[in-house]
Design a protein around this nucleic acid. Structure first.
Lengths: 241, 241
DNA sequence: TAGCACCTATAGCATTGCTATATGAACTGA
DNA sequence: TCAGTTCATATAGCAATGCTATAGGTGCTA
């Protein structure tokens, strides 16, 4: 139960802290647990890191190095926006793989350390977005785009972490990701005119669906299913209500 | 320095905890500080709330009531998507006004309590999106849209909280907000442009009908018919583009 | 060998969340 | 009116926490 490996105590403390943090399930981790697992006594910890927070900052810094490495460690595809997608997915995956560490990095807020990390993550993404801008693919400043995308990226990751692993639906991530990337990209994005506020009755909706179905040859339903479906639809769309 | 006001101790504890939490600047708040400010001794706290966490949960619950009240307390404009914008702005403002409370609610994660709150916030937004869907203004399921928008909303708010108040640029919020809303909204008539990134009109119509049906208790179909009908409707409205 | 900087251990302090127990107050039924 | 019961608060103290004052090795240089 001790992390001896002839490693220097400083390293053992770092690893012990990281391991306990990762397995704590959100609960607090005591210095006594850490020092015991590291096979070291208390003053050693305070000699090397000054503080419990100092130790945790070191753990976070190490985690951030790993994060940055993950964000850089793929061959650029030549399509900057495609690379942004991969950065997004990497970010989410990092959060899901190391939720506790991620929470300390992006979920917690201590007015000094967090902005530094966030700023670095922003810079990382901005760097990539600069290429997109150079290729004329952005319709906003790269910095603003990076901030916006990263904010959404963090929000999605936090939400995915918060829900039980069995219910996690990564479509939330891809959908939000593509929405953000589309929003900053220079495609011919027409205005968002709300348009006519169509009536909201069941009848109107049913009629619309009916018409759309007739015209589209959807193959989601078998022919017998479709027949019955249309009959019901007709019943609904001719209802007196 | 005491919160006496002839209020019952339970209330004084709640207010003391809320006040200390709001002014702690992220630092830990001890039960002794709370009980002293409330003019009460320790066992009183544990009698009423069982736990330090129990007390904080109560504070969060009260904060959430306030949040929900803020989200409901404006006249519906008749344009659901415009109301969604206001919900977003309310959310951000709540976070900036009470950052510490907000962090406990949305930034922290304790696998039990947080998902409940997030789920409630989701439901709140989904409720509004149902109206948009019923009006044929959505191209995704209201639930998915709500999750996606809320995730981005939280991410933006956290990022704004993290940076010094002087540098806060709310344009990050409006830009991300409009990007998300645009992404989930159906292409406004103006030419129908079927091919583009928008989903087919069948899907839009099916989603609208689904939302309208849920809200209207139509009795044109028997319950068993309705069940099967909804199942098919779901199949259609989640079909790949 | 002596001196020196570095690293670690022994032991203990103040504060933390929490509780076993007891005391008071308010209500209930006779 | 009064004993019994329940609710609410206080006294005092426990175990665990973060942290530290002090002292003891350990290896290097001279």
């Amino acid at each position: 139960m001790s992390l001896d490996g002839q490693l220097p105590p400083k390293m053992r403390l770092l690893r012990a802290a990281a391991e306990l943090l990762a397995n704590s399930g959100g609960a607090a981790v005591s210095t006594r647990q850490i020092t015991q697992l590291a096979g070291v006594t208390a003053p050693t910890l305070y000699h090397h890191f000054g503080d419990k927070e100092g130790l945790f900052d070191a753990v976070v810094a190490a985690g951030f190095e790993e994060y940055v490495a993950g964000e850089r460690d793929f061959a650029p595809s030549g399509q900057p926006l495609e690379d942004i997608r991969r950065m997004w997915d990497n970010h989410v995956q990092f959060g899901l793989n190391q939720p506790e560490l991620y929470l300390v990095m992006f979920g917690n807020i201590r007015p000094e350390s967090r902005p530094a990390i966030v700023a670095d993550a922003e810079a990382l993404m901005e760097e990539m977005l600069n290429k997109a801008a150079a290729a004329g693919q952005l319709n906003v400043q790269p910095r603003e785009a990076a901030r916006s995308i990263l904010a959404a990226n963090v929000g999605v990751t936090l939400m995915l972490i918060a829900e039980p692993a069995s219910e996690r639906n990564l479509e939330l991530s891809t959908m939000t990701r593509d929405a953000m990337i589309f929003a900053v990209s220079a495609e011919p994005a027409s205005g968002t005119a709300p348009g006519d506020t169509g009536k909201s009755s069941v009848v109107v909706a049913a009629i619309a669906l009916n018409a759309a179905l007739q015209a589209s040859h959807s193959d989601q339903l078998s022919s017998s299913e479709l027949k019955l479906f249309l009959e019901w639809l007709h019943r609904i769309s001719t209802s007196p209500a």
